[in-house]
């Protein structure tokens, strides 16, 4: 019979997983509202305004609309894969968060119990995250193929080519960070950046900022956001891989996409911006989780800002950037980082 501490540990893991899942399920609601509001203000209009004060209830209206919509499976579509594809897109997006740390240990007052703010500190954490977020592509490819539609198929194909091209650049950026931290564990990567802002990887001059830009460009392409949202280029491909999806299946794809954006923001913070470390020592008792959330929020805003500022790349430009600029730059940067680690 396991003792009480083991049982408590077990229950805590389930509770943490449940809380993370619930937060992730709920997150697209404020994010869609924010995205529309930001779009509105950048384009000098108000954005959602009518449902609730400042359109705050708009996401709930959208949710009800998506739930009530007819769930159409196209004629001659591959039923099994058509139904599975949205789940294939969504499950890996959630699974990624099993390895993401939100902070160090926190002492619960009164209970005298140390709570870790992560599900697991894997010693291959960053590899696991790269692998898991890479799996989301199957929802896109298989969904595109199963829809039995030209637009969907082309959108799926574009995605697969784009993912393969940019995953290499992102992996190299991660290798750079691993070289700086000497560990694959995300908790260790954050610990290696402890102290003030000068210890963050972004300020490991001159290679830090280069890694950061490679990471940002690569991951923007991987999560299919502007300026790399070619898989859903509405001008040429209708809605890309999810042209034929409606109702909740479409909502699952959207959910996966928003969670992917959060994941990339979280990774950017953990890998380059010191995770939950404060930028400089402040005499006020600000919890580390606050810094973490603030930085993540900034990156989410940055992605939305980029979306409504930049035009979309052409497909050949996309491939050129991936293979002819980011890849050689990463290789040179690996060498530079290695030399700096050895001789500095």
């Amino acid at each position: 019979m396991p003792d009480t501490s083991t049982i408590l540990e077990f229950i805590l893991i389930i509770v943490k997983a449940w809380v993370i899942a619930m937060v992730l399920f709920g997150l697209p609601l404020p994010l869609t509202w924010l995205e529309r509001k930001i779009a509105g203000h950048i384009q000098v209009r108000l954005g959602p305004w009518r449902v609730g004060p400042h359109g705050l209830l708009q996401p709930f209206a959208d949710m009800i609309k998506l739930l009530m919509k007819e769930d159409i499976v196209p004629y001659k579509a591959d039923k099994l894969l058509f139904v599975i594809a949205p789940l294939l897109a969504m499950v890996p997006a959630f699974a990624v968060f099993a390895a993401i740390p939100f902070g160090e240990k926190v002492l619960i007052p009164g209970l005298d119990y140390e709570l870790t703010l992560y599900l697991s500190d894997m010693n291959v954490g960053i590899l696991y995250i790269l692998a898991m977020s890479g799996l989301g592509i199957y929802g896109v490819i298989l969904g595109g193929w199963a829809s039995n539609s030209k637009y969907s198929l082309l959108g799926g194909l574009r995605s697969s080519a784009q993912m393969i091209s940019y995953e290499i650049a992102v992996s190299f950026a991660v290798i750079g960070v691993v070289m700086l931290a000497n560990s694959l564990s995300l908790v260790d990567i954050v610990r290696a950046q402890g102290g003030n802002i000068l210890h963050w990887n972004i300020l490991y001059l001159p290679v830090g900022p280069v890694w950061f830009f490679i990471f940002m460009i690569g991951s923007t392409a991987e999560i299919n956001r502007v300026p790399f949202d070619l898989p859903e280029d509405e001008g040429t491909l209708a809605a890309g891989f999810h042209t034929e999806y409606s109702g909740m299946k479409f909502a699952f794809f959207m959910l996966a996409e928003y969670i992917a954006m959060v994941t990339v923001s979280v990774l950017a913070v953990i890998l380059f911006f010191g995770g939950w470390n404060a930028p400089f020592s402040i005499p006020l008792p600000i919890p580390p989780i606050f810094w973490f959330m603030a930085k993540v929020a900034f990156f989410i805003y940055l992605f939305m800002w980029i979306r409504f500022t930049l035009p979309r790349y052409r497909y050949d430009q996309l491939m050129n950037i991936g293979w002819k600029i980011l890849l050689p730059l990463s290789l040179v940067n690996v060498l530079a980082t290695g030399l700096m680690r050895l001789y500095l």
Binding site: V124, A131, L135, I137, Y138, I141, S160, I164
Partner: peptide, 26 residues
């Protein structure tokens, strides 16, 4: 062997199978 597992996911499932599917579809 978590490293092997992660690499299996990353290389085989994440990259090689995507290319496989790509070839099959094209």
């Amino acid at each position: 062997s978590p490293f092997l597992a992660a690499v299996q996911l990353f290389i085989y499932v994440g990259a090689i199978m995507v290319l496989f599917l790509f070839a099959v579809l094209v």
